[in-house]
Design a protein around this nucleic acid. Structure first.
Length: 602
RNA sequence: CGGGGAGUAGCGCAGUCCGGCAGCGCACAGCGUUUGGGACGCUGGGGUCGGAGGUUCAAAUCCUCUCUCCCCGACCA
């Protein structure tokens, strides 16, 4: 491609709205252009990056016998009603009506449509297993898009769905997609780790997220360097400290004027925060057992004062759809006092009381007294109150003990670039996607779903590979592999002639060349070259031409050298091969190492 | 949805407090000089000042309403 003909623009100045490096660079390099919050155009250079990644995805999906399909972006409401997600999902789903006033939604994901496809085609166990995938647009009306391409509303996702006869089949497939995902990310030059994750609205029995570690990540992960345990903070477990056994002492009221936080309480009484109990008031949206309709339920959660409530764990414990903080009037309505909340003396008929399992075994805690400016000393679970649910509802954090080996957990930030779910029969059972087994009995197909967001992958790769001057794209996903810079001037037309010839030679040799034939000064061309991050830069100027060489420079490390013009195409191809090999070699190592941590349910 | 910031030329911004010709830099077009890390000179084009309403002789500027974008939080398949 001649750069003089390329539809692109580079920005000299850093866009003021962009905070993180990948966002700034994608805008400055002219890969994408925003048209609304979380909605972007892909320009030709960005499109080429996207296409490269998609080809890697196709190769890895095909390698595990995936078959590519394309399913619609506009879905009839009926299919989403069959699984209940039409009602269960809120404003994140964009809905529309057609001219006949029928309901439709924009695709957030494709479980329903894939399940519908499977039930239309599958009737016999002989047709199973199989895996289908697509690379298709999703729309999720995020409340707040952020971080450039990290959290957007419209995006392209490669989503794959597996269909098996039974859980054993799914369990056998799961490690294969797990490994294929590692291959995809590493081929894109992106290091990721897999962590256990919440199944969320997807449902199912097991899920992993693939996380690119970066400070700009939205998720907190907990890792154990000793044994390899890794989990999203949303579900991460940890070994809780054993409280010292002590005989329950008599409960006593203590005056604590204006002491309405744990920190203040700890300071006021001169006790560690670990000897206090913290009350958290929430309203949960749950399904009413009798009517089946959603209703709001007051939830009183108690955790130790030095720990944080984990709302995902609590949501799962309650089987709730969502939680929100309770308002002061709602808190008073159940007989509690904000800032001095206590599980003792509340209207239990209107409250679901959930207590962290550590609280249940910790003697003589300080808790609120449910009246302003008073707390209780020596509150003991069992003697003073009992809960509706006792389970783990606190968040793991930096330094907590690993649940497997007891080693210290480390907290890091990550971007979720992919996820895999064992769905089981949630969708097939709801939608009647069944097959007949050897005995002629109808059984629901066992499913899994597996997704990777392309834009987020690009942004994460750029977060990982850039410097002050621009992108240092891994050669496998760079828009072009070689940038040929001509430094011809009006006085050196012979440079143009030779550069033109080299461009043709390289292109005919199959090299993806971007040819900077623009009438710009050298500085402009070099700065654009660094910004775009084409991995191999060839520079031809009058001096080099006289010596019969072109300068070659690697973007990733700045190494320079000279290549004779007579064998340029061959030498460049060798460099490209070497650069690709660098990445592929890493793939092999990473894959072997990571497959050890793969887990399957049995 | 809560808190904060911002909408003025393609991009980055000043002007708004204190109403009075809509400006600067980059980019763009023409001419000339330059030419290995974002050149220089001269000339030129480009604006419903986010939108609507109001106050005023006069509104980018004051008032009311509204839309949009960015950041933090809530949310996040």
């Amino acid at each position: 491609m001649r750069m003089s003909k390329l539809f692109f623009q580079t920005l000299r100045e850093v866009p003021v709205d962009a905070e993180i490096a990948s966002h700034q660079l994608m805008l400055r390099a002219g890969l994408v252009l925003p048209i609304a919050a979380g909605i972007f155009d892909y320009l030709p250079l960005g499109q080429r990056v996207k296409a490269k990644i998609e080809e890697i995805m196709r190769a890895e999906m095909n390698a595990i016998e995936g078959q590519e399909v394309t399913l619609p972006v506009v879905h009839p409401a009926e299919l989403w009603q069959q699984t209940g997600r039409w009602q269960a999902i809120g404003d994140d789903m964009a809905r529309l009506k057609d001219r006949h006033n029928r309901d439709y939604c924009l695709a957030m994901t494709h479980e329903e449509i894939m399940t519908d496809l499977a039930r239309a085609v599958v009737s016999s166990y002989r047709q199973l297993p199989f895996m289908l995938y697509q690379i298709q647009t999703k729309f999720r009306d995020e409340p707040r898009p952020r971080g450039g391409m990290i959290r957007v509303r419209e995006f392209t996702m490669k989503d794959a769905y597996s269909f098996d006869r039974d859980f054993a089949g799914l369990d056998a497939f799961y490690p294969r997609i797990y490994q294929a995902y590692f291959n995809i990310f590493r081929r894109c030059g992106l290091e990721v780790i897999a962590v256990e994750s919440d199944t969320g609205m997807m449902g199912g029995t097991m899920a992993h997220e693939f996380m690119a570690l970066t400070e700009v990540g939205e998720d907190t992960l907990l890792l154990c360097d000793a044994c390899g345990y890794s989990a999203n903070r949303q579900i991460a477990e940890f070994r809780k400290p054993q409280p010292e056994a002590a005989a329950p002492r008599p409960r006593e009221e203590v005056h604590t004027p204006a002491v309405n936080t744990i920190a203040a309480l700890s300071a006021f009484l001169g006790i560690p925060e670990a000897e206090t109990a913290k009350a958290v008031f929430l309203m949960a949206e749950v399904q009413d057992e009798e009517s089946g309709k959603p209703r709001e339920q007051f939830v009183f959660a108690v955790v130790r004062g030095d720990m944080e409530l984990n709302e995902t764990k609590l949501t799962n414990a309650l089987k709730a759809r969502r939680l929100r903080p309770a308002t002061v009037p709602e808190i008073q309505a159940i007989g509690a006092e904000a800032g001095f909340g206590s599980p003792i003396g509340i209207d239990r008929s209107r409250v679901v009381l959930v207590v962290d399992d550590l609280i249940a075994v910790s003697p003589n805690l300080v808790a609120g007294a449910n009246k302003p400016d008073y707390h209780f000393r020596n509150v003991n679970y069992g003697r003073d109150y009992t809960a509706d649910i006792v389970t783990d509802i606190v968040a793991a954090g930096e330094g907590h003990a690993c649940p497997h080996c007891g080693g210290a957990l480390r907290a890091v930030r990550g971007v979720e670039v992919g996820n895999i779910f064992k769905l089981g029969t949630k969708y097939s059972a709801a939608m009647g996607a069944t097959y007949y087994d050897e005995e002629g009995a109808a059984k629901p197909i066992v499913m899994g779903s597996y997704g990777i967001g392309t834009g987020r992958l690009i942004a994460s790769a750029i977060e990982r590979h850039h410097d002050d001057m621009g992108i240092q794209g891994p050669i496998t996903i760079a828009p072009y592999t070689v940038l040929l810079v001509s430094l011809a001037t009006e006085r050196t037309p012979e440079v143009t002639q030779v550069a033109d010839r080299l461009y043709v030679e390289l292109t005919q040799a199959g090299v993806e060349v971007l040819y900077d034939d623009r009438n710009e000064r050298a500085g402009v061309k070099f700065n654009d070259a660094d910004l775009l991050g084409i991995p191999i830069r060839l520079t031809l100027g009058a001096k080099g031409l006289a010596a019969g060489v072109a300068e070659v420079k690697l973007r990733r490390n700045g190494e320079t050298g000279e290549l004779p013009l007579t064998s340029l195409a061959r030498d460049v191809q060798a460099m490209i091969d070497a650069e690709i090999d660098r990445i592929l070699v890493t793939v092999t190592n990473e894959t072997l190492a990571s497959s050890d941590t793969s887990e399957t349910s049995s």
